[in-house]
């Protein structure tokens, strides 16, 4: 049978914008609408909310009963404690400052992070749901290697091994699905992760690693100390 049309199967709306549905005789034409099961907000949701809130407070009260908020010596501008630490959520930043000049660690990097977070929904890369190696794997690989190489050079230059090691580990993880094409399993799952997922995860890993190091592993003169030798 001669065909005067071409059927391409693809779920990607960008590549195959128009779709034709063939309805064969055997199946009845009907749209299967998924009927979402609805429940009343009161009491189903509200009860859950209240229980969650109560449990939250119970936990908080128990912590507050047994752990006292710190109160150190009265402020003394003439004596800088060693090390002087910011609150824990800034210790990642403080750790960055240890490696980079203040303008980079204190202004540019945190500024970039906030901007990057804000523009996430407006960047097309974040709307893609395909695994990062799905389209143009070669091109992607080159871009990827160039980027990782650049980052490696910069981090090595400033001796930021705390960032470099996790970065390289993650890069290796990213490359696994490129070389081992497999459906299913952990590798298959990794292969379906889009680029935006990798970038965000990289950011989270960095934030967690730096904050942990700054909080637990830094002592006088911002030297490396093990937590069991005292948390400063």
């Amino acid at each position: 049978m001669a065909k005067d049309f071409n059927v391409e199967r693809n779920s990607d709306a960008k590549k195959v914008p128009k779709r034709i549905a063939f309805i064969k005789d055997r199946t009845r034409a009907r749209v299967r609408q998924e009927e979402e099961e609805m429940v009343m907000t009161v009491p189903n949701l509200v009860a859950k909310e209240i229980i969650a809130f109560e449990i939250l407070i119970i936990v908080l009260v128990m912590v507050s009963l047994f752990v006292d908020a710190p109160l150190e010596w009265i402020a003394n501008p003439e004596h800088t404690p060693n090390p002087a630490k910011a609150p824990w959520y800034f210790l990642g930043l403080q750790e960055l400052l240890h490696y980079f000049p203040p303008i980079v660690g204190g202004v540019i990097l945190p500024g970039l992070v906030v901007v990057a977070l804000i523009i996430i929904p407006y960047v097309r890369i974040n709307l893609k749901t395909d695994g990062m190696w799905k389209d143009y794997p070669q091109k992607t690989l080159i871009g990827f290697l160039v980027f990782v190489g650049g980052v490696t050079v910069v981090l090595a230059m400033f001796h930021v091994y705390a960032m470099l090691v996790p970065t390289l580990l993650m890069s290796a993880l990213m490359l696994v699905p490129y070389f081992v094409r497999r459906e299913g399993g952990v590798i298959g799952w990794l292969g379906t992760r889009p680029l935006s997922w990798w970038v965000m995860t990289w950011f989270v890993v960095m934030a967690v690693v730096l904050t942990t190091i700054g909080t637990l592993f830094r002592g006088p003169e911002w030297r490396w100390t093990w937590p069991w030798n005292g948390i400063y």
Partner: peptide
């Protein structure tokens, strides 16, 4: 079950709040 959970968490909630006073 959710009623029991609700009742239980509310009782514990009130008891816990009374500890400090």
């Amino acid at each position: 079950r959710s009623r029991i959970a609700f009742a239980l968490s509310s009782v514990v909630f009130l008891v816990v709040l009374a500890i400090s006073p």
